[in-house]
Design a protein around this nucleic acid. Sequence first.
RNA 1: GUGGCUGUAGCUCAGUUGGUUAGAGCAUCGGCUUGUGGUGCCGAGGGUCGGGGGUUCAAAUCCCCUCAGCCACCCCA
Length: 414
Amino acid sequence: MSSLQPVRGTHDILPDDFRLQKSVADCAAEIAGRYGFKEITPPVFEFTEVFARTLGDTSDIVTKEMYTFEDRGGDSITLRPEFTAGIARAFMSNGLAQEIPCKFFCRGPVFRHERPQKGRLRQFHQVDVEIIGVPGPLADIEVIAVGAHFLETLGVLGDAVLQLNTLGDTESRLAYREKLIGYLEGHKGDLSEDSLARLQKNPLRIFDSKDHGDQAVMADAPLLGDHLNDHSNEFFTHVRDGLDALGIAYEINSRLVRGLDYYCHTAFEFVTDTLGAQGAVLAGGRYDGLMEQMGGRAMPGIGWAAGVERLSMMVGEAPAAPNLIVVIPLGDVAEREGLKVTQQLRHAGLVVEMGYSGNMKKRINRANKAGAGAVVIIGEDELTKGVATVRNMETGEQTEIALDALVDHLAAYR
RNA sequence: GUGGCUGUAGCUCAGUUGGUUAGAGCAUCGGCUUGUGGUGCCGAGGGUCGGGGGUUCAAAUCCCCUCAGCCACCCCA
């Protein structure tokens, strides 16, 4: 269509939506801050390798879902599709292994070349927390707790269910994977085409399939939970005890899986049925194998990410805009005084605009539509008396206030 | 990337079997009101009917292509 149209899957965030989305991200930052997470921000783009190496082969993700391009130096660059890989890279680049445990909070735009749907855009925004350097389950408990706390504060926790699963440690997973593939080989005829493709590269994902034939096969498939070694079982029990102690409700979902090899132990998703078929609103897990896969030294990590647009849709209503005062000067001389008053009030911490176009009626009308709590009128009458007329926009009541008492008087409208 | 549904004014939507100059509500602007908003009355502006091509005497309406949105799938790092 016309070039005035934004690129597919992008859109402009206008004031009401912006205020809502900012309040959601600010809420996450504030809650995470209470848990000791420090906000950092990695670059919006990285060398493609940073993301590609975490994903291994030429999966759909690499070939189909990433915004990748070549810069002028010939390097392959990718717009970040998530925060974790960039944070892990930053952790290694800056030698932060000295400072573990590291607890980071991030927010900002991420990019995925997907078919857009409501709340699922090609440029969207995430909030993200990560704990790096803690191998034990206390980190898992804390990461889930901060997520639950965040959703609770937003007022959407009641519309979501925490689903929890364990992927076990590497030993358990590898042994189980063999067993699962063995089982699936025996049922090849009943699997969907998609799942046949998944069989070698990502067999765990078949648990997620929406195909009825697949689901029938998987109903009798061996479960990871039955193949955990002692260490993995203890770890999971520890996590669950911690959640129980905190009163965080969850349900075990043994179909909740992560396909990539660096994941282990805890996997979780807060799932809702209020946003269509894509139910997860906040999802994360433990990725002890990630750094090693990226070429660094082994370093445990766990975190989650949540989509700001989707959370905003659940919240629905934007918080009220700050109270506004509008100064209306009438005439050239008053305009000079109006400028001074406006600036004074701003320095005093009030949100003030000057209504400078049109006649009185139009200006008052505009102030009203902008949501002004009070209007300060300065005309010739007022000037000769050294006062301003303050109109309370809710009651319509007007009072004359001495110019040097304006700041104090208007403090009530803050 | 695959499939389905939908695109008419800033927004929400009418528009008959293809037939004059494409309508309404809300919003915007102007007036009733020369320094006073919300309700009221009067009036005005605003449309490449998503875009391109085709069929036809005639297309918002039928056909093809394309773009976008929505829904589901793939994917979900």
